[in-house]
Write a protein that binds this DNA or RNA. Structure first.
Lengths: 334, 334
DNA sequence: TTACATAACTAAAACGATTTAACGGTTTGC
DNA sequence: GCAAACCGTTAAATCGTTTTAGTTATGTAA
């Protein structure tokens, strides 16, 4: 049933008024008599008037919509980020269009184009696009404000909200060493994203400050999947190196690593201690409750969005480079 | 920097052509000479033309955007559903606006209004609004096609895609009984949603068919949180009833239940077997790998969206009531 | 009485696309 | 050689708002 949609014009005709009067009355803009405003509001309700945001957007050049691009295969990691973005957007009267780019930079850029065509007022990017040299030029070409969350580009020339990866991993490795671990493997995420190289920085710094030696052979790479973590851990176990702790670049890898360790008949943490990064939702209820670095994912999404909206509303001009300190969460796995 | 945005008009002026010619050429509508089309496309690229979807939407009364309302507190459960919706929407050239209603029916309805104002082409609802008597009347009043996913209303008068809750819980309880459990508690989700009452139906049917007696005292209620599952399990443990298995209305409750059991010094599954429902992402890597009913969440989102888009494009008229069979996933907890 | 401010309201022009109807000019059919 | 068909193109209407610039009418001050 093709519904008949009521417009301002219909209301105006019904009441023998001008479209302008109706528009102003419904927006409470003033300049219309009190009694008339009442009549108009009553008619709007009676006729089941639905404002047409599309027309409004065209006229005002504003959509009250933000684009959110999530570009990672580990989509579930981003769930709290998405929640945070949605929440604060809603608080300020914005909606979000969610795009998943499935770890494909081309798709990410295509999403930006689509969102630009849809004239979103701003973009929240949890993107890997940053790898590209030209990302800034590309993004700026649309003239839409944007903010990075979770990940940032090499330089500080964009707005971003992230956690302090170097600090987080330093804290963890420092804790592991101080509590007795001598030989700590690092299964880092094998992707060219600043977050991961920063985690490496923290790892090395912790070794250095504690007078331990850095050993290339203790570094392993894995994609952020359980399977890859499992495989990497098995490589460690069969390497012959004596290892008493494993620091994983993310909790998902840690899950895989724990599986491999338990399957080999070893005990966590007695034989090998395991630590992760992120503190994913059920990290406390895993095979062995996981010690990890808590990244404030929800908060990062929320703050990033608030900054973006401030930008949109012209509240400030300066670059916002926000780096939140993550917390160590100690559980049974260490 | 307020960017100068290029319009069809600008291109037309640049080339001394009409707006229509440019519009048709860029859309490949035909009726424009080949050489001219080339000139136009070249100019569009050179001038960095960005189609204005808002204007297009106004004219064509189509936004190529769907609304997705997720109304549950257990947002992460919906992650794969959201992924499925986004994926198939993208495949058909649609974007999604994601709204979280935080278990608040009023917010759900407000979201519908906002999305209707934004003129989305359709709505995917993972909503609890269904509790309201008037939900159909309300939804229909907007004249926008919609489909329910995961949850359906009492009647079959809407389109929906769900899993067969009664079947799933029947299978699970049947399996538990046939493999030796005599006294099976059921911690069901305490919400007025058809899914949960259906799971109760399956539970009772399994008892009945196996000649076991249904006992009200073995039924517990909990919100879908770890804490509530934990609390419910503790009530069971202190009830004095001898219980050898617990079937939980969802995996999150099962996580809490397992915590309580282990904390009481009991073994899973030796002392008490635990089963869940949903098969959330890391169910296989929990304290004790969880036996559960796998609900095809991603697929439900995907199918729901496909049906919706078919409706939008006028492919069919008949109501689509799709009930997918869930699978039993047997793991260590039983 | 004239002039002027104010309140209440209106007409018309945007906004940037799509779509309809029509226009010359060339080709085709007969 | 004439009408019909076709091609490339255009002007203008349209979508439903907001916004700009007026236009009345009424009351108040000079």
């Amino acid at each position: 049933m093709p519904k008949k949609v009521v417009t301002l014009k219909n209301i105006a005709q019904e009441l023998n008024l001008s479209i302008t009067a109706v528009s102003k009355a419904l927006r409470g803009e003033g300049g219309i008599g009190k009694a008339t405003v009442e009549r108009i509001k009553e008619a709007a309700k009676r006729m089941n008037y639905m404002p047409n945001s599309v027309a409004k957007s065209l006229r005002t050049n504003t959509t009250k919509t933000l684009g959110l691009i999530v570009s990672d295969s580990s989509f579930s990691f981003f769930t709290p980020v998405i929640e945070g973005v949605e929440k604060s957007a809603a608080e300020y009267g914005y909606n979000i269009i969610l795009c998943n780019a499935y770890s494909n930079v081309e798709k990410e850029m295509e999403s930006v184009r689509i969102l630009a065509n849809k004239r979103v007022d701003g973009l929240v990017l949890a993107a890997s696009m940053l790898n590209c040299e030209c990302h800034k030029e590309f993004l700026d070409s649309f003239g839409i404000p944007y903010v990075f969350v979770i990940r940032k580009s090499e330089t500080d020339e964009n707005d971003y909200v992230i956690n302090d990866n170097a600090y987080g991993s330093f804290q963890m490795v420092d804790y592991l060493i101080k509590t007795g671990s001598k030989s700590i493997c690092f299964i880092n995420i094998y992707e060219k994203i600043s977050s991961y190289s920063e985690r490496m920085v923290g790892y090395r710094k912790a070794l250095l400050e504690n007078g331990a030696v850095y050993n290339d052979k203790l570094i392993y790479g894995a994609k952020p999947t359980v399977e890859d973590g499992y495989a990497a851990m098995n490589r460690i176990l069969t390497s012959g190196d004596s290892v008493d702790a494993v620091f994983c670049g993310c909790d998902v890898i840690a899950i895989g690593a724990m599986e491999a360790i338990l399957e080999a008949g070893l005990k966590i943490p007695e034989d090998i201690r395991v630590a992760g990064y992120d503190d994913i939702e059920y990290a406390a209820y895993l095979r062995v409750p996981l010690t990890t670095v808590r990244q404030p994912k929800y908060k990062i999404g929320k703050m990033g969005t608030e900054i973006l909206i401030d930008k949109i509303q012209g509240k400030f001009e300066e670059k916002q480079n926000i780096v939140l300190r993550p917390d160590l969460v100690l559980r049974q796995s260490t």
